[in-house]
Design a protein around this nucleic acid. Structure first.
Length: 574
RNA sequence: CGGGGUGUAGCUCAGCUUGGUAGAGCACUAGCUUCGGGAGCUAGGGGCCAGAGGUUCAAAUCCUCUCAUCCCGACCA
């Protein structure tokens, strides 16, 4: 491809509303343009990358025997009412009406459609297991689209659905998909981790997420330094502290803490470490009541864990200041578990404390030297906090570290959630009707493009891995407009590279060298060839890999072979 | 949804406090010079100052409302 025939509207400066590096670089490299919040056009260069990602995903899906289909983006409300999600999914579901005022939605996911399709087409256990996938545009009316393509409302997703007679069969396909996903992200040249995850709105039982590791990731992942264990922080279990709780040493005291509200304030005021304080959070109970959750001062409430407790409203909703005053009689900054008339649930770590500090349920007062079982009853204990770095790994091996990740894939064992609601069944060997068991498997295809950039860039621009680069080689002729020799040599080399099947971008624009260099580095082409008078005199050409510090002069006669060997090298990051 | 910010040329931004002919750099067009790291000079083109009301002789500027958009929190590929 010639740059003169390709729209590459590069920018020197990033638009002010682009915050993260991948968003900035995709705009600057001329890959995408925004149409509305969370809705983007893909320009030629961006689309080439997107298609590369798609291609790898498609190959690996086909390889594990999944069959490609394409389902409608627009779906009738009836299916969603049947599954129960028309009401449940909320405003993230973009609802539309047709000319007859019938309700439709723009599909955010396709469990309903595929289940409807399969219940009509598959009748016998002999046709199972079967897996179907599509690569298709989804729309989720995100409460807060951000970071460009990373969290868009309209985005490209690969979604696959598998159907089984029983759980054993589902597990086999699930494992196969796990392997396929691992191959996909490996081939894409990404550093990633598989983590255990919450199932969220999709529902079902087991589920794992695939995260690309990047500091700008929106998710926190906990993983062991001594085993394969990795889990979303939402889900990672905080173990019961080892050893016995210390015996009380201090007596219960009331201390004046005027104006000290946060744990930060109180620990500084009393010159005590934060982990010697507890914080008490009031939340809505399951039935129109208020409950208290107690955590160690240095720990954070895990909303997912708390929401799963019986008695606590799900999702977790904090009590308002008015409700706190009504229930306890003081401001939220002075709450404590002693003497509360409401149900109290205490985190494992907080329950392990002795001689701790807590609010006295009076403004400006705290208790010190507090001990469970002496100053107040032994508590009801649960795991309700986020794990932190240094916690023991839940699998008993090593300690946890926390990293940030971008979720690019998610696999679920759905069980019969949709098939039962929509009565999708087959006849088994005995002629009995059996509800099919299902799995579903998603990959954020467009998000991968952004994630790859987050993980691979420098101050000059994007650094594509060979697997998804829009072009493998950039061919830059120096001063071609003036030099007949350079022009002829460049045209000849361009043809030779093309004949060798190499995706080459020939910069034939009448531009100064600096502009070409800057553009090609910005758009991240892995290999660069510079052809000039100087080199022609010596029969050499300059080569530089995108990550190389220095360029090298190579014999012109063998350059095609050299590039081929670089591409075959497999170290995709060259 | 709650909280905060921003809307002026394709992009980055000045101008607004103190109303009085709409600006700069980059990008774009033409010419000359330059030509291996985002060139220089000259001459151009391009704006309903987000929109709608108001105040005023006069509004980008002051007031009100609306819309868009971004950031921080509860959700997700």
């Amino acid at each position: 491809m010639r740059t003169s025939q390709l729209l590459i509207p590069t920018l020197k400066e990033a638009p002010a509303d682009a915050e993260v590096i991948s968003h900035q670089l995709m705009l600057r490299a001329g890959m995408i343009r925004k149409l509305a919040a969370g809705i983007y056009s893909w320009l030629p260069l961006g689309l080439r990358v997107l298609r590369k990602v798609e291609g790898i995903v498609r190959e690996e899906m086909d390889r594990v025997g999944a069959q490609e289909v394409l389902m409608p983006a627009i779906q009738p409300a009836e299916l969603w009412q049947e599954s129960g999600r028309w009401g449940f999914y909320g405003s993230e579901l973009l609802r539309i009406k047709d000319r007859h005022q019938r309700d439709f939605c723009f599909g955010p996911t396709h469990e309903e459609v595929i289940t409807d399709l399969i219940r009509n087409e598959i009748r016998s256990y002999k046709q199972l297991p079967a897996t179907f996938y599509q690569i298709q545009t989804k729309f989720r009316d995100e409460p807060r689209p951000r970071f460009g393509i990373m969290r868009a409302r309209e985005f490209l997703m690969k979604d696959a659905y598998s159907f089984h007679l029983d759980q054993t069969s589902l597990q086999e396909t699930y494992d196969l998909m796990h392997e396929a996903y691992t191959r996909i992200f490996t081939r894409l040249g990404l550093k990633f981790r598989t983590v255990y995850a919450d199932t969220g709105a999709i529902g079902g039982s087991g589920s794992q997420e695939f995260h690309v590791l990047a500091d700008t990731g929106e998710d926190a992942i906990a993983f062991s330094n001594a085993s394969d264990f990795a889990a979303n922080v939402e889900l990672a279990e905080a173990l019961v502290p080892s050893g016995k709780r210390s015996a009380p040493q201090q007596t219960l005291n009331t201390v004046d803490t005027p104006g000290q509200h946060s744990i930060e304030d109180v620990s500084r005021f009393l010159k005590l470490p934060r982990e010697q304080c507890v914080k008490t959070l009031l939340v809505q109970g399951a039935k129109d009541n208020i409950m208290a959750l107690v955590l160690r001062g240095d720990h954070e409430l895990n909303m997912v864990k708390a929401g799963k407790l019986t008695g606590v409203a799900s999702p977790v909703v904090f009590a308002t200041n008015e409700q706190v005053r009504a229930a306890v009689g003081c401001e939220p900054g002075s709450l404590g578990p002693i003497g509360l008339k409401i149900d109290v649930i205490v985190d494992r770590a907080a329950a392990h404390l002795a001689d701790f500090v807590c609010g006295a349920n009076q403004d400006g007062k705290h208790y010190s030297g507090v001990n469970w079982g002496r100053d107040l009853a032994e508590p009801l204990i649960a795991d309700i906090r986020n794990v932190v770095a240094g916690d023991p790994s839940p699998d008993g091996k090593g300690t946890l570290a926390i990293a940030r990740g971008i979720e690019v894939g998610h696999i679920f064992q759905l069980g019969t959630k949709y098939s039962a609601a929509m009565n999708a069944s087959v006849l088994d060997q005995a002629g009995q009707s059996v509800i099919m068991t299902m799995g579903c498997y998603g990959i954020g295809v467009s998000r991968i493009v952004a994630a790859a950039i987050e993980q691979n860039h420098d101050d000059r621009g994007i650094i594509w891995s060979q697997a998804i680069a829009p072009f493998q080689v950039a061919l830059l002729p120096m001063n071609m407009q003036k030099s007949q020799r350079v022009r002829e040599a460049a045209e000849k080399l361009y043809r030779a590279l093309q004949d060798a099947g190499i995706a080459v971008l020939f910069d034939d624009r009448p531009l100064r060298a600096g502009v070409m260099f800057a553009d090609m580095e910005l758009i991240g082409i892995p290999h660069r060839l510079v052809l000039g008078e100087r080199g022609l005199d010596a029969n050499t050409i300059e080569y530089k890999g995108r990550r190389d510090a220095e360029s090298q002069d190579l014999p012109l006669s063998t350059i095609v072979e050299f590039i081929q060997s670089q591409l075959a090298d497999g170290s995709a990051q060259k």
